[in-house]
Amino acid sequence: MKKLASILVAASALVAFSGLAHAEAEKSAKPVGFSFEGPFGTFDKGQLQRGYKVYKEVCAACHSMKFVAFRNLADKGGPGFTEAQVKALAATFKVHDLNDKGEAVDRVGLPSDYFPSPFANDDAAKAANGGALPPDLSLITKSREGWHGTFNQLVNGIGGPQYVYSLLTGFEKEPEDVAKDKPDGKYYNPYFQNGIWIAMPPPLSDGQVTFDDGAPNKLEDEAKDVAAFLAWTAEPKMEERKQVGFEVLIYLAILAGLLYGVKRKIWAAIH
C-alpha cells in the first residue's frame, strides 16, 4: 500500500503542475459560497428561479443565451419550473420565424425555442454597446475563472460563479491614480478579466428586481441569484453528474477491494 500511495502522490504531483493560469483581473473574485459547491451540493431551485428573473428583466436586454431552451427550465436538476410555467414564460418572448408562406414573422415563444438573442448579430450588438460585444451567457461561469493557482483551483474550484457575482457587485469609484486614464463610456471594475475598464454600466442595484417569493433583493442578493442561475445554464447536468459519480465511485471502491483481496490471496504463496 505504501507503493500505491507513492503512485497517487506522483500522479497528483503531475496534476499539480497542470495549466497554471495568470492573474488578469486586478482582484480575485470574492469567495462567496453557493449551495451547489462540494461533492453533494445541489442547486437551490428558489434561487435559480429568482436568478432567472434577474436574467430576464436585466441581463437579457443585451446578453444572448443561445444554448439554453425554454424547455430546459423544467428539466430535472434545474430551476424546477412546471411545464405550464415554462409555456407561460416562453410566451413572454417574441421569436423570429417564417410563416407557412415563407414570410418573416414574430410569433410568441414556445417551450422548444431557444432563448432569442437581443441583437440580430454580433455587429449589431457591438454597435449598440459602444463597440463592446456583450458575451453570450450560456457558458459564462465555465469560461471565466475567479482566482488562480493550481492548488487553489483544485481545492476551491475555478470560481466562475464567484467571478460573475464579483463583477456585478464590483463597480467602484475609480481610484485617483487611474481616473485620468478613464476611457469614454467605460466603468471601473477591478474584478473584470480584461483590465479594469468595462463597457457594461452597473446593471444591478438594490431593489431593482422584485422577487415573487419575497426574498431579499439587495444588490448582493440579486447578483448571487443570477450567478447561481448562470452556473446552472453552464452546467445543467451538474446534479446528475454528482449522483452518477457517487454511484460509480462506490462501485469502483468495492471492485478495488475485491481485486485486492484476490490478489493478496493468490500472491501469498509466492512471497
Partner: peptide, 19 residues
Amino acid sequence: YALFVFYGPNYMGEPVNYT
C-alpha cells in the same frame, strides 16, 4: 480518474475554451 470526471471535470481544462 472518476474523481476528476465527476467532481472536477473542468479542472484540467482552460476556461477560455468555453468561448
